[in-house]
């Protein structure tokens, strides 16, 4: 390194520069970074391999959407049909109705169901007797384990006009029975109420974990500052879990057009089908029951593209508003 032999401020600057360029040309900066983080890459590797093997190796399945795939014939020998499946889907006279039903239900879900676990978690957090808090927590998460088939059966038992327990109560009060199960106007509220009943308690767990990570000192400081409980909730608790809320919201948007097939399938009948038909049930009818793999894959692909637009769009928005976002 001859530069060290030279003297004077000019030379020093020059030397620094040349040293940097020499280093840069021989060993690019990223190698140094990788070397420094080598253990992180080791940690990353099993997960990365998992994604490549189990998620990306089977990814050719997406291409089925452009084929007329037959399971026995296999991927390589099935006929390629270009965009025909998509054309059939969009040209389907039911497309607009399916999109509308799916969209409305998804919005209902987002507006009514998504906030429910957050609210319940915050309310639980305000309970100071630990035994009661744990007891309630354990009770509200029980319905998560009851399968949809059973939930649908019990809904029938409670709501039927032919002696359903709840409908009899309605009859005692109002003097008439409400056809909850057949009336199309009741379909969406019913779906949302079922899902709220079944999953709210389960959904609280993740927020409770976030709340458990909130620094106790912050609360103490707020108390010293004279904040009452509502102020503490607003200024300490909510900000602490806001990033989890935002992430869950973004991830939910990625599955925006998924309505939960089994539930809707079970609650659909001849009298409410006009509002109950959604993409997921449609895919079942044309795909699973009739073996139209390619067609149902095409519909899935359409849903995924909508999902990816929403996920990246909302992630971008979240970042603009100063949130962490997905990454």
């Amino acid at each position: 390194m001859d530069s060290t032999l030279q003297s004077g401020p000019d030379a020093a600057v020059k030397a620094k520069k040349s040293k940097a360029t020499v280093l840069g040309s021989q060993r690019p900066s990223w190698i140094g970074k990788v070397k420094k983080d080598r253990w992180l890459y080791v940690l990353l590797l099993p997960g990365l391999i998992y994604f490549l093997v189990f998620k990306y190796l089977p990814m050719w399945g997406v291409l089925i959407a452009f084929q007329n795939f037959q399971p026995f014939v296999g991927f390589w020998n099935s006929e390629w049909v270009g965009l025909e499946n998509f054309r059939n889907f969009f040209a389907n006279p039911d497309f607009v109705r399916l999109l509308r039903n799916t969209f409305i239900l998804a919005v209902y879900d987002l507006v009514f169901f998504f906030p429910a676990p957050i609210i319940v978690a915050l309310l639980l957090n305000e309970i100071r007797v630990n035994v009661i808090k744990r007891f309630i927590q354990t009770m509200v998460y029980v319905p998560h384990f009851i399968s949809m088939v059973i939930v649908a059966s019990m809904t029938y038992v409670f709501l039927t006009t032919q002696g359903g327990v709840l409908n009899e109560a309605v009859f005692q009060i109002t003097g008439r029975r409400i056809d909850f199960l057949a009336d199309p106007d009741w379909f969406r509220p019913l779906i949302i109420l079922q899902i709220m009943w079944k999953e709210t308690g389960w959904g609280t767990i993740i927020f409770l974990a976030a709340l458990a990570s909130v620094d106790v000192e912050q609360y103490e400081a707020a108390v010293v500052d004279g904040a009452n409980r509502f102020q503490r909730l607003w200024h300490v608790t909510l900000p602490a879990i806001s990033s989890v809320i935002v992430i869950l919201l973004i991830l939910r948007l990625g599955n925006f057009l998924d309505n939960g097939f089994e539930q809707i399938f079970l609650m659909t009948n001849s009298l409410n089908r006009t509002v109950a038909d959604v993409f997921d049930t449609y895919v079942y009818f044309v795909g699973i029951t009739q073996g139209a793999f390619s067609y149902s894959t095409a519909i899935g692909l359409f849903k995924s593209i909508v999902g990816i637009v929403l996920i990246y769009g909302s992630n971008w928005l979240a970042k603009r508003f100063g949130q962490e976002g997905l990454y």
Binding site: Y156, V157, T160, T161, Q162, L181, L271
Partner: peptide
């Protein structure tokens, strides 16, 4: 016939 036939659960 039962008034709720259109929605009745076949299990029962």
């Amino acid at each position: 016939v039962n008034s709720d036939f259109a929605v009745m659960d076949p299990a029962v």
